[in-house]
Structures are given as structure tokens and as C-alpha cells.
């Protein structure tokens, strides 16, 4: 359940950013979570609600933007969508190197 640690980090980023913009209330949070980032979105929502309770982001809407996984075939070099890390290149039947979908970032905040 490392989503709890991640949610704690998200809150810290929110608090730093709000302080920087002289705000004491955050209404919405946009997170970008890659589909290969090893994050369970429902667990993230649960943990976000738990850690933001009583904070400046209490009750904030959480929008999660899921960025799709991408991989590159080590044999033919083609880039393609990657649903699971263990998917193989459909043409070469060779493993793919992950090139996208591992992002975990706080993109945007809506604040007072």
C-alpha cells in the first residue's frame, strides 16, 4: 500500500504550492498517473481522501489522468502501446522496453 506514501507526498506538494500562491484552500487536484507506474488508482483515491482530511485540500476533487503505457521493440525498434509490462511485440514476439506510462506527477491545482 505505497499509495499512502504517495498520497502524503501529493499533499506536501499541494501545501507547498498553495503556500507559494498565498492560498489556504485547494478545490481540485489533477494527477497524472502512468498506467505502468505501479499505482492502484482506487487505492490512491482512498489514500488521498484519508491524508487530505483536515488539510487545505479537505474535500478536494481528485482528477486522475491516466497516461497510456508505451514500449519499443528491442528487435524491430517500433514504438507501440503497451498495456502490460510483459506484452511482447506482436510482429517479432520479442520483449519491449518501456518508454512511457511510468509518470507520477501533480499536474495542476485549482485553489482559492
Amino acid at each position: 500500500m505505497h499509495e499512502m506514501s504517495l498520497a502524503e507526498s501529493v499533499l506536501e506538494i499541494i501545501e507547498n504550492s498553495a503556500a507559494q500562491h498565498d492560498s489556504n484552500k485547494v478545490h481540485a487536484v489533477w494527477l497524472e498517473i502512468g498506467q505502468l507506474a505501479g499505482v492502484e488508482v482506487e487505492a490512491m483515491r482512498f489514500c488521498f481522501d484519508a491524508v487530505t482530511r483536515g488539510s487545505i485540500a479537505d474535500g478536494a476533487r481528485l482528477e486522475i489522468i491516466a497516461t497510456p503505457g508505451r514500449g519499443r521493440c528491442l528487435s524491430c525498434g517500433k514504438s507501440m502501446p503497451l498495456i502490460e509490462r510483459y506484452d511482447l511485440c506482436p510482429e517479432c514476439d520479442m520483449p519491449l522496453e518501456v518508454t512511457g506510462g511510468t509518470e507520477m506527477r501533480v499536474k495542476e491545482l485549482e485553489m482559492e
Partner: peptide
């Protein structure tokens, strides 16, 4: 900061920070 989008007093702020940055 961006222009407010929801209500007169709220505004959207680009953050773009890696959650694991710390």
C-alpha cells in the same frame, strides 16, 4: 497562475511536480 475558471476567487495553477521528487 492561470485565470480563474471556477468561481470568481478560484484559479488554476500549473504544478508539474513529480510525486516521488522528495
Amino acid at each position: 497562475s492561470h485565470e480563474p475558471v471556477h468561481g470568481e476567487t478560484s484559479r488554476r495553477v500549473q504544478v508539474e511536480k513529480d510525486i516521488l521528487a522528495k
